[in-house]
């Protein structure tokens, strides 16, 4: 890595951080809540894409079912709120509207699903892995479509946003900063992981599985762990999403959503930490621009992703970074 690139990278990161912190204030000055909502969506997408990138970019595992964990996280929050509203209990526990309970629980639920689905999916590889992760996600999707008690197709609305340690986070600006702080935390943890012993094994197994086995590693355990971490991250993202939209529905788990997350990770560039954030930003920009033009915006968006994958295999961040970044 050259010094020039290091400097440029630091400048870019600081600039992005400043922009993200300043954004809600600027939006407030302009009186635009839409901009804050859009930016909050960006943060949540970036979080999910960062988790996905751990398995996709570093692990080389194309999971086509990541929306399932996103949706499960969202539903965990919504279902807990639903039972609180109804005054009923779920599995013997009362409902809650407290983020400190609901969000970790969302991560646990998504993590457990990822553990079970991952344990089975990771026995396969290549196209089979893509298909089986998709199949599990579709299965989850239809379970929630069939769950009429929780709204089925129509989904569930949340009466109120969660409280965070008793404090209200209803205000768009406050919620934005909660999401920003959590995104920073997720990025920090994932970044450290990728260069840790664990990350080296995960990446090594992507680079050459046979070589890694020959020196004594069983890639399966490491991949499964990464899969669960990615699932938990998506679960947290889903929990935040449920709070942002105050609504969950099976659409959160649709295969198109899984495709969106993949597109974000690929757009931004795999095997970089900044990639998923840039990818999410690009996705939000393209989506909000194109969907204003035509309802079939994905017809245009699809080819853009393919073009990036073909002509800039290391994504938008890779284009910026040139040949320097590993």
């Amino acid at each position: 890595m050259t010094d020039r690139w290091k400097l440029l990278r630091s400048i870019l990161i600081v600039a992005a951080a400043v922009a993200l912190i300043a954004l809600p204030f600027v939006a407030a000055m302009l009186g635009s809540t839409y901009a804050i909502t859009l930016a909050t969506r960006l943060l949540i997408y970036a979080m999910v894409a960062t988790g996905l990138n751990l398995i996709l970019g570093y692990g080389g595992l194309v999971s086509f079912g990541h929306a399932a964990y996103f949706g499960l996280g969202g539903y965990t929050v919504a279902i807990l709120a639903f039972h609180l509203g109804e005054g009923t209990s779920i599995l013997g526990f009362p409902g809650t509207n407290e983020a400190l309970v609901a969000w970790p629980l969302a991560m646990v639920v998504s993590g457990l699903a990822a553990l079970v689905f991952g344990a089975l999916s990771l026995r396969t590889s290549g196209v089979y892995f893509i298909m089986i992760t998709l199949a599990f996600a579709q299965m989850t999707y239809y379970v929630f479509v069939a769950l009429k008690y929780y709204g089925g197709d129509d989904g569930l609305s949340l009466a109120r946003r969660n409280t965070l340690g008793g404090a209200r986070i209803v205000d768009a600006q406050t919620f934005y900063f909660v999401c920003l702080a959590l995104l920073a935390l997720v990025i920090g943890v994932v970044q450290r992981m990728t260069v840790s012993r664990f990350g080296m094994v995960l990446s090594g197994a992507r680079a050459d599985e046979r070589r890694m086995m020959a020196i004594g590693y069983s890639p399966y355990r490491y991949r499964l762990t990464a899969f669960v971490i990615a699932g938990m991250t998506a679960g947290l993202g889903g929990a935040l999403w449920a709070n942002l939209a105050r609504f969950v529905s099976p659409d959160m788990m649709a295969w198109t959503k899984s495709g969106d997350f993949l597109a974000m990770a690929i757009l931004g560039g795999l095997t970089s930490i900044a990639g998923p954030v840039i990818g999410a930003a690009a996705f939000i920009l393209i989506e909000s621009t194109l969907s204003g033009l035509t309802e079939y915006w994905q017809v245009i968006f699809g080819p853009i992703v393919v073009a990036v994958a073909l002509f800039a295999p290391r994504g938008l961040w890779g284009m910026l970074a040139g040949k320097q970044e590993r």
């Binding site: 012993r197 990350g199 094994v201 004594g216 490491y222």
Partner: peptide, 13 residues
């Protein structure tokens, strides 16, 4: 690989 499991997540290897 010789130093036991690699479930170490936070230190820069």
């Amino acid at each position: 690989a010789k130093l036991g499991h690699s479930f170490r997540f936070l230190r820069n290897a």
